[in-house]
């Protein structure tokens, strides 16, 4: 890469963060990584713990549920994980379109970058309204 000569060179630097104007395409990119890593480091270990607790018997499952019930922790984590999933899902679908070489026009890119988090919020809200209406959690 060009950086091999280090700071001694006097070549123009690429614009850095403080020069960029904040835009929805930056937000959706950052959210994609944050939600993916969040699910990988929090959601998936919880999923495995849940399956392990079921397999280990009722006492083990009750212990899992006691953590879930502690100070709404389960709801906070599950709402966060469900939003993370839908955000990552819609953002991933956007990436499939970009992979095909489409959607790079400025207005189109901007439109879908705004649509992705909005769709994720609406889907998460709809799912929890459905859960609340059925009173299963």
């Amino acid at each position: 890469m060009a950086g091999a000569s280090g700071s001694a060179s006097n070549r123009p630097l690429s614009p850095h963060l403080q020069v960029y104007k904040w835009g929805p395409h930056m937000l959706v990119s950052i959210l994609h990584r944050a939600t993916g890593d969040g699910m990988a480091l929090v959601g998936v270990p919880l999923l495995v713990w849940w399956l392990y607790a079921i397999s280990a018997g009722p006492e083990s499952y009750a212990y899992f549920q006691s953590w879930f019930d502690w100070f709404y922790l389960g709801y906070i984590v599950l709402v966060g994980m469900s939003f993370s999933f839908f955000e990552h899902m819609y953002s991933g679908l956007r990436h499939f379109v970009l992979d095909a070489g489409a959607g790079y026009e400025l207005q189109t890119n901007r439109m879908w970058s705004i649509a992705v988090p909005l769709a994720a919020i609406i889907t998460t809200g709809a799912m929890w309204l459905y859960i609340a209406s059925k009173n299963i959690l």
Binding site: L47, V48, L51, Y52, I54, S55, A56
Partner: peptide, 10 residues
């Protein structure tokens, strides 16, 4: 492995 084994055991 832990997840798959747990499901298999159940």
């Amino acid at each position: 492995a832990l997840g798959i084994f747990s499901v298999a055991k159940i």
